[in-house]
Design a protein around this nucleic acid. Sequence first.
DNA 1: AGTCGCTTGTGAAGACACGCACAAAGTTGC
DNA 2: GCAACTTTGTGCGTGTCTTCACAAGCGACT
Lengths: 248, 248
Amino acid sequence: MPVPAEAGSEGTTVKQRSIPEASVARLAVYLRMLGELAEQGAETVSSDELAAATGVNPAKLRKDLSYIGSYGIRGVGYEISSLLHQLERALGLNHRQAVALVGVGNLGHALAGYGGFGGRGFPVTALFDVDPDLVGIHINGILVDHIRAIPEVCAERAITIGVIATPAQAAQGACDLLVESGVRCILNFAPVVLQVPGEVEVRKVDLAVELQILAFHVARRHLTATADVVTEQMVNGHAVNGSGGAHS
Amino acid sequence: MPVPAEAGSEGTTVKQRSIPEASVARLAVYLRMLGELAEQGAETVSSDELAAATGVNPAKLRKDLSYIGSYGIRGVGYEISSLLHQLERALGLNHRQAVALVGVGNLGHALAGYGGFGGRGFPVTALFDVDPDLVGIHINGILVDHIRAIPEVCAERAITIGVIATPAQAAQGACDLLVESGVRCILNFAPVVLQVPGEVEVRKVDLAVELQILAFHVARRHLTATADVVTEQMVNGHAVNGSGGAHS
DNA sequence: AGTCGCTTGTGAAGACACGCACAAAGTTGC
DNA sequence: GCAACTTTGTGCGTGTCTTCACAAGCGACT
Ligand SMILES: NC(=O)c1ccc[n+]([C@@H]2O[C@H](COP(=O)([O-])OP(=O)(O)OC[C@H]3O[C@@H](n4cnc5c(N)ncnc54)[C@H](O)[C@@H]3O)[C@@H](O)[C@H]2O)c1
Ligand SMILES: NC(=O)c1ccc[n+]([C@@H]2O[C@H](COP(=O)([O-])OP(=O)(O)OC[C@H]3O[C@@H](n4cnc5c(N)ncnc54)[C@H](O)[C@@H]3O)[C@@H](O)[C@H]2O)c1
């Protein structure tokens, strides 16, 4: 099945019939590490090296990469610039995705001023709030608009991704506005479960939950440490994200 | 299962012999929703209601809850206050976990000032930075110390969880300091893979990765939308965390 | 008491993810 | 040109997570 020997459907019709969700998250991590390696002047990298650098099992890494095609050279490794380009294509980064941020409070300010988004192909091009003290000011060169301008501005600037950093009780309203305006992907920092139509995808970043997961492991660790004496702990190791998730 | 009273066999230790990682993340979400319901004065809740409110499959929710014991009443649902208490116990929230935050920049400021942590049993009780302009000031009533004070302060205030919000290149150093000081659980916001000894658990929150995952779905959506016409999209819906994803 | 309706808890099956291990395919050295 | 070595790509067994479906348990009503 995933052995379509035929290279027939190469360039145009992207054959990426379903990359596993878990793999997509890791591909993004490989992408960043490849960027760093490229900056350092490296030309090729082996799966073992890249796996060690990203904290992933080498076989898993190769399988992840195989979902986007066979761009490795046996006996050598992967050519970094080429792989980088293929990864960007596969992740949909060939055309920049404009991001709108709703709620410019403590967290929103930090996000708006963060260079790591624009630098990775996600320029924050719209900011919204309701606070009259905020509406009208510029942050990092971007004007803060009132949320009633969301439909207009989103259409005008071709917003594809919305980020919600409002208080919890305002999040659903902000979400509804974004969805009405055609936004189909939302990153939510408010601790609420957003109700959205089926075609809209929501990812939630919940920092309190992250801490609770850690606290759970602290507690468990403590229990096993006091109960069994020095029962060797699982060798495996890390948990991630996300996720990862995410967080782990 | 209707346990054979004898816990003798393998269960030498605690009965919570391993709650699946994915379930732990969701239990934290149920916990918050239960808190809200309790505030609203509700006394009981059924798995269907709670599942709808948290965006989870009802069967999955029941199975998650079954890992911490049988606290439901058939034909009725779950008594909220009782379930809340059991959840807190299972997640290790009976005793508060003190949190240290390293790196009080844009993001660190927002985190330090966030009431949602202390309110959920995770008081941020220590702040660290290297910037002379920051060391010595108070944020939200907490003094910012120099990172060289990490070992001393962590021991003194019984820190169990560390949060890293430094620039990427400083993250590993901050991590090492925390680990040396006995911290065994770390939440990392810097876009690097931390190297830690096996007994330390790291969760990473990587916002750029979150955006890239969304971008991937935008791209995919766009492809299928132009290729097939209105092919019915998957009904499932949301993705979480990460954990995830970990959480990820 | 008996019956009925509702909800939990879980067995079992399916879906998914992981990682080993190895053949295929390349490179290097002679 | 051939043999030795390196590294990719993947088939497959294993384990974890998800979901369905239903018996068992509980309360309410008659
Ligand atoms: N600050 C953190 O570190 C942190 C951490 C985790 C989660 N969060 C969550 O992120 C969200 C924002 O946190 P914060 O600390 O920035 O809060 P904040 O109160 O500092 O900022 C909220 C901002 O949203 C604006 N706002 C209020 N109602 C709005 C509406 N209807 N539409 C648009 N904007 C509106 C406010 O004017 C304010 O500027 C909260 O839901 C919080 O739970 C924050
Ligand atoms: N700001 C955001 O919205 C955002 C979003 C995602 C990820 N991040 C990540 O979080 C981290 C912090 O981001 P930021 O925007 O707050 O950066 P920032 O530059 O505003 O803050 C960094 C802080 O860390 C301090 N610092 C530097 N070296 C240190 C060291 N060795 N020990 C302790 N503290 C040190 C600095 O003095 C500064 O106060 C970065 O790694 C960034 O990539 C930030």
